[in-house]
Design a protein around this nucleic acid. Structure first.
Lengths: 397, 397
DNA sequence: CGACTATTTACAGGGGTCGGAATAACTGCT
DNA sequence: AGCAGTTATTCCGACCCCTGTAAATAGTCG
């Protein structure tokens, strides 16, 4: 949404200030001025607006040796709470955050195979939601991340590969049932938003977040804004071909990145390296866990598996580097969390081989190490953003 | 460049108006209002500014049956002329355009193998420039497209794969020699800019231009603006891996798209399908030409070659569809021109197989059929844009 | 009560967009 | 010839932004 009118500039600046306040814990207006490049006057005006709206709070002034102590700004936890939901293929994670986006409560349920229909999901989520919220009236909005393709505007899960759902109007259903505003998107977009809030300096940059889990995907930020593409399916990097005529992928294609480095793809590599290996019977979550442990113990099979998968990951990342030319790539997701840096290191030579020198030079690759469920956090942030955005445009009407 | 200040909005609107005036030949202010969504007042103010600057011209008013006749707007050819240069790997094409971007003169020289050093290029271009411009003082600026990676800001050819040039400061050299402002970029960016001017409706969209020639690459537009990435190397789609461990590519990687569907890649397919076939000895330009002719005549080898290459092109395009989620993809370049729709048709099944349903649904693929050298045109347009942009910011100072 | 630093407020200046009133320029009718 | 009807453009004032400066206000330490 390229700013067309002056009001858009205002909103964009307002969110920048908000993100910076969040990221820098209690900050002063001066710090924000220094970091954002906005003028003192502008920051002050935005701050007063947010203060008046009850979004921000002035916290205990820090007394310095000399002069007036600076009043610190922080998000006001009392503004309300926001719920973030990470619907993954093997588990559900629901967390409630106060308006300063600190987690208040969270719960998780393994649902491997237990969710088949939207009704199942609805039932589980309603249950989990009740677990984290005593009083639903304090919740301002819920953000939900669902794997697959999501139409963010209509709140419809367009295609969820694991359950083969097509066009399920999740937002309408859940919002109706809970009587709360619900925002829907997929894990990648949630991760990206999470990162944009945690690191507002990167909020100017072009970069990508890569999610490694059962499914695999990426989210791309252009000039610090989540890039959605024509139909909110930009970043479906997991179904990018890296081997013409290669492994079959559940998307129906062949040789997709996901087929090699998604959790089932890793299991396939185990089978390939050591046919009949006991890990292959464990189920993907446990198998990856076992792989991680064995890797730490220096197991040879594990090493070979990671090396094999790493080659494909490397090619996939190099593709991202060459086409998107990002400033950095961040790896996230439970597979990345479990395998740690090993997978990234296994991918590095491949990236260096396949990526062109110039874009390679300008990219940094790292692993997301923030504690907690970043997807749930991001989903809650979505809800917060939407909530504030609405309040802001309404307030100025 | 996300507009941060009101002036950015102005510039963006100004260029939008300009592009629309160009694309719709003589238009009225009203048409622009209807198409751009800007208000009458804004369009009028921009129009008067451009009129005053001498960029626009009011042409013969069209008298209607009733009411005040509308004055039509057009770019003023008398504003000056702009030169566009397409430095390709096998030829040089230099064209001069008046300020309404209609071609006034052009010349072309085959230089297969004759250009080795920057000095060679400088000599040839100086020569060709003289051929198209009688009076150099009427030329406002020159835009040059050079294959490979270009740093647009510093005007340096960072890496030109065919000549193995690294860090050649072309802009400084040529600008100094010709005493004219010179703008440097690569063919993809030029193509993209050309399309953005010719089809301003697409200038709101996210889409891609793919260039098929000796080298292969893509340019991506986000929200109607050329996307450059972190170091102006976004869109190096030609060096995207489509087959891990596949054919060696001149970039040093393996299995790059370019290795399969760049002109040398096509020749390799000929050798593969029919070892020792006479076409393989022709040189790439002639070989592709022969291939095109044989294809039209229904030759079987040609058909097989195109089918084989098409499969890789399909995978490559699908990757673009899945990661960028563009509204359309346009194929350009001399290989695309010679082989016509056959190659695109050969690629289509692959795209449909590998791309996800939703992004596939929202993409249109077509071939660029505009007559003339679109790269030279785009290069000239770069020069025009830069020239006006400078004039505009200076004018308001 | 200084001295000193943080913030707020007020204001002028420079951009922009927008809607609506006023004006221009024709055609056609009387 | 003059006037009404129409449509294209320009003009003006309202309004929204950001910015820099300057002065007023706050809060603390010595």
């Amino acid at each position: 949404m390229a700013p067309r009118t002056a009001a858009d500039i205002r909103r964009s600046n307002l969110f920048q200030v908000l993100r910076r306040v969040f990221a820098a814990a209690p900050t002063s207006r001066h710090e924000i001025v220094a970091e954002s490049g906005l003028s003192m006057a502008t920051v002050a005006s935005i701050a007063t607006e947010l203060l008046a709206a009850g979004v921000l709070l002035e916290v205990a002034p820090a007394t310095r040796s000399k002069g007036r102590p600076l009043t610190r700004l922080a998000l006001d936890p009392a503004y309300g709470s926001f719920v973030g939901v990470d619907v993954a293929e093997t588990y559900l994670h629901v967390a409630r955050y106060d308006a300063s986006l600190t987690e208040v409560a969270s719960t998780r349920r393994e649902v491997d195979g237990e969710v088949r229909t939207p009704e199942d999901l609805e039932r589980h989520l309603t249950d989990l939601l009740a677990q984290v919220t005593a009083d639903r009236s304090t919740v301002r909005a819920v953000g939900i991340s669902v794997p697959g393709l999501v139409d963010d505007e209509s709140g419809v899960s367009v295609y969820a590969p694991n359950w083969d759902w097509r066009g399920v109007p999740l937002r309408a259903r859940l919002s109706g049932r809970w009587q709360l505003p619900v925002h829907l998107d997929n894990p990648l977009k949630a991760l990206m938003v999470s990162e944009l809030w945690h690191d507002p300096d990167a909020a100017e940059a072009n970069w990508a977040v890569v999610n490694l889990g059962t499914g695999v995907g990426a989210a791309i930020a252009v000039a610090g804004e989540l890039y959605r593409g024509a139909s909110n399916s930009a970043g479906e990097w997991g179904h990018t071909t890296v081997a013409v005529g290669g492994r079959e992928c559940r998307c129906g294609g062949t040789g997709c990145v996901e087929a090699y480095i998604g959790a089932p793809g890793l299991v396939a590599f185990i089978e390939q390296v050591a046919p009949g290996h006991p890990w292959t019977t464990l189920g993907e979550t446990a198998a990856v866990q076992a792989l991680a442990e064995a890797l730490a113990a220096g197991d040879d099979v594990a090493r070979q598996v990671v090396a094999a998968a790493g080659a494909y990951l490397g090619a996939g990342l190099a593709n991202l580097v060459n086409t998107v030319n990002p400033e950095r790539i961040v790896l996230a997701g439970w597979v990345s969390d479990l395998l740690g840096d090993a997978l990234l290191e296994a991918a590095r030579p491949g990236v260096e081989h396949q990526a062109l020198a110039r874009p390679l030079q300008s990219v940094t690759m790292s692993r997301l190490t923030r504690p907690g469920n970043a997807v749930a956090f991001g989903a809650a942030t979505f809800a917060l953003e939407a909530s504030l955005s609405q309040a802001h445009t309404e307030g100025s009407r």
